[in-house]
Design a protein around this nucleic acid. Structure first.
Lengths: 206, 206
DNA sequence: CGCAAGCTTGCACGCTGTGCAAGCTTGCGT
DNA sequence: ACGCAAGCTTGCACAGCGTGCAAGCTTGCG
């Protein structure tokens, strides 16, 4: 749905390569030693660049571990805008955009699940993750406001939907064998149902 | 509803005083110069304690600006547990607990609004705020799981409700003259209604 | 071929956050 | 009343973080 249309020049590819190398190095090192025992210097060293260069790409090791591309946010808001344009309600439109983003990110499902686990286990990574979601939230609010006007409702629906999506991802990460797409859909369905309380302990005893 | 029943000894009062002094100093300095231009050393100096002491109370200047008391989270979860015990559904129970917490925090409405404004304008303070909400969320999930069993639903309802409460506070902070209690209730009402889209630009043209 | 833009690098520097050990106050039991 | 144990404060040292700046090198383009 959303793709890189223009093949970037050698320069941008090199830059992206450095970024990717740093991201991978950070992930590996954290997996090996745990976040606390990893320094920016060590990451840069493994990626074979200067320490200073690290900070040209990420502003903290947590960010490097996550490795989110700022372009992702743009893709999501573009999808959101499109879905809204097709007459979907804000909540449905957000679901569509988030589903699309997830498909894109989960190409390598295993690595993705592992990253989620890191977010769960390392509070500082979680904080960095929040920062990214926050940026995305702000952008999405702007788009939704374009459709329904500014005010509490726009902020609310986006904040809530983002929280739901985040929860779905984290919950999925620790339940092997479950489909992320289905989990996401379940959360949005629950939202639309006003978060009514489901059957006690077991969802369906049948 | 929730109070400090045992009058704490001199020792604990002194400790609390130091903490409060640091909190106030941090707020004032940030208000004067902006967060970036404030150092931990400056805060400690104004509070008339050693720099090292600062870190015995807060782990960053952002935390000091917020000045959240860890005990607050305990009070909220206690209220939540009580509300659940009275047979309220999870969402309603959370609303009750959050409303009570807000009453307690908003004693000085003006200072409270000002703090919210800081959260809005300083991204790092916002991040610290997220960290606190996150801690609260985890505690609340545990309580809700006690009532409805573990699983996606418990995590979801808490995450979403917290997001709604946070949104209500922030939205309220920049709309003078509005009642926070009413704003909060409006968000939870919207949640229960499945976040259905309200009338386009103006809520009611009538 | 040559120039401008932009990425990388090294250097310097101030600030952050924590471990450790010493000093002082407080609370409490004898 | 006394003295001890717990705990808060303080100074010191130190590793690590994050940024500004200027120089060097590669890339893209006319």
């Amino acid at each position: 749905m959303t793709g890189t249309l223009a093949p970037p020049g050698r320069r941008e590819r090199k830059k992206a390569a450095t970024r990717q190398a740093l991201h991978v190095a950070a992930q590996e090192l954290v997996a090996e030693r745990g976040l606390a025992a990893v320094t920016v210097e060590a990451i840069a060293q493994r990626a074979d660049v200067a320490t200073r260069t690290f900070f040209n790409h990420f502003s903290s090791k947590e960010e490097a571990v996550l490795g989110w591309d700022p372009a992702e946010a743009d893709e999501i808001t573009a999808d959101l805008r499109a879905a809204l344009g097709e007459g979907l309600g804000p909540l449905d439109a957000i679901e569509v955009a988030v589903q699309a983003a997830t498909e894109r990110a989960a190409v390598d499902s295993e690595a993705f699940r592992q990253r989620m686990a890191l977010v769960r286990s390392e509070p500082l990574v979680l904080a960095a993750s929040y920062a990214q979601w926050e940026r995305l939230t702000a952008a999405m609010v702007e788009v939704v406001e374009g459709a329904v006007g500014p005010g509490l409702y726009a902020s609310l629906v986006v904040a809530v939907a983002v929280a739901a999506a985040r929860t779905a991802r984290l919950e999925w990460a620790q339940n092997p064998g479950v489909d992320l797409r289905a989990t996401l859909h379940a959360t949005f369905t629950a939202l639309r149902a006003g978060l009514a309380q489901p059957a006690p302990t077991r969802p369906e005893h049948r």
